[in-house]
């Protein structure tokens, strides 16, 4: 029976990190199932789900910590939980936001969404230089379940935007099956 492991790694960005980490994964006999990698404030961050027919030797990653200064964690995932996971159904939408940087933007928005049962499926935020103060930008993808009035969500978003001095825009993602 296949076993699944999560591997997360973060460290100062430089060429060769992906090669080094994937070499270890390959030599341990694991298979990369899903992965996402990005640079956050100069740190190269990786999240991978790998599968194995048997256990994963966590010790195999020790060398990477020393050689590349990566912070790596490896955890086994609960197979039963993976099998039972249900993808929330609904219509995909994107919310983008821009405003003056201040604490509580992500919290305010995510609280509004979760109170409506709207699932966040992807999110990326970045602080960029502004005219005189830093500017906060955000793009998030959400799944809006059937039965939710999107106009109502949009209204509440603009109300929240006024409170936080953030401009939110909400739009549906058109998905074409071809």
């Amino acid at each position: 029976m296949k076993r699944y492991f999560s591997i997360t790694s973060i460290g100062d960005d430089r060429p060769g990190i992906v090669a080094a980490v994937s070499e270890v994964i390959y030599k341990l006999g694991a298979n990369i199932e899903d992965s996402s990698m990005t640079i956050l404030k100069g740190q190269f961050a990786m999240i991978l789900i790998v599968s194995m027919d048997d256990g994963l030797d966590k010790g195999g990653f020790r060398g990477l910590r020393e050689a590349l200064g990566l912070h790596i964690t490896v955890e086994e995932l609960d197979r039963a939980q993976l099998d039972e996971h249900v993808v929330p159904s609904g219509t995909p939408h994107i919310i983008s936001a821009i405003g003056t940087d201040k604490p509580g933007i992500v919290y305010g928005l995510s609280k509004l969404l979760s109170s409506k049962g709207i699932n966040i499926t992807d999110m990326s935020t970045k602080v960029i230089p502004g005219e005189d103060t830093p500017v906060y930008t955000m793009v998030i993808e959400i799944t809006v379940p059937a039965g939710i009035e999107i106009d109502k969500v949009e209204e509440e978003l603009s109300e929240l935007g006024r409170e936080l001095s953030v401009d939110f825009s909400l739009r549906e993602v058109e998905v074409l099956g071809l």
Binding site: S36, V87, S89, P92, T121, D122, E141, T143, V173, V175
Partner: peptide, 8 residues
Amino acid sequence: LGRNLIRR
């Protein structure tokens, strides 16, 4: 990628 929007 619209990675989050993978259809079942």
